[in-house]
């Protein structure tokens, strides 16, 4: 153990919801994106699911908003070490979209892509079972553009770079195809509880 002289740190009363190596950002919700925030109106937004599916589909804003709603209320974790507790997102469960396109049994992974060109790769299993959403609102208000509005992917059990802002679609694949940060040295899965930050973790 390499002790740093004079460092005591904050209170040891650790929030049980805080994964290893993370700190509580409190009321802050830092913005981290490597691109220019797009000027994307809800009427221009679409969400498509294609690749290894029985029936490719594209939803417009109105069509997506008409689907049965679902809420995630819980924590989010950024790979840059901040976590934010008790955020309430509302949107539509990704299961609703995936059930509609009927994934091919050979599909094992997905690339989520944004209207900006951002991509991130995920195991399909992480997008199933009520653990992923297309989110339209956060804490009762429309998602601000800098946080991915009008709609973002939400996969809160993984580091937040997986929750692609300005989500445009999912492509289902039979292999893992690294996305933007995954090609830039970040972990393929990104489970915060196993501290899977960088490839090799």
């Amino acid at each position: 153990m390499n002790v740093t002289r004079g460092f005591t740190g904050r209170s040891r009363a650790r929030h049980p919801g805080l994964p290893p190596g993370q700190y509580d950002a409190g009321d802050d919700w830092p913005v981290l994106s490597a691109e220019v925030t797009p000027d994307l109106a809800p009427e221009e937004w679409t969400f498509r699911v294609d690749g290894l599916v029985a029936e490719e589909r594209t939803w417009t804003w109105a069509e997506a908003r008409a689907l049965p709603g679902s809420v995630y209320e819980g924590d989010i974790h950024c790979v840059t070490s901040w976590s934010k507790f008790g955020v309430r997102f509302s949107g539509v469960s990704l299961d609703v979209f995936l059930d509609a396109v009927r994934p091919d049994p050979a599909a094992t992974h997905a690339v989520a892509y944004a209207h900006t060109g951002y991509t991130t790769s995920l195991p399909l299993a992480d997008l199933r079972g009520g653990r992923a959403w297309i989110a339209f609102d956060a804490d009762g208000a429309p998602l601000p553009p800098e946080h991915g509005g009008p709609a973002r992917l939400l996969v809160p059990h993984l580091y937040f770079w997986k929750s692609a802002k300005w989500i445009a679609g999912l492509r289902l694949l039979d292999h893992d195809e690294p996305g933007f940060w995954e090609q830039n040295g970040y972990h393929a899965r990104g489970n915060p509880w196993q501290e899977q930050r960088y490839s090799g973790d």
Binding site: A114, G117, Y118, E177, F180, Q183, G185, Y198, S199
Partner: peptide, 19 residues
């Protein structure tokens, strides 16, 4: 096409040992 290469590329390839 099925090859999904949308994003602005990184300036360098970063492999595991670098982190």
């Amino acid at each position: 096409p099925l090859a999904t290469r949308f994003a602005v590329p990184g300036r360098i390839a970063v492999d595991a040992p670098q982190a």
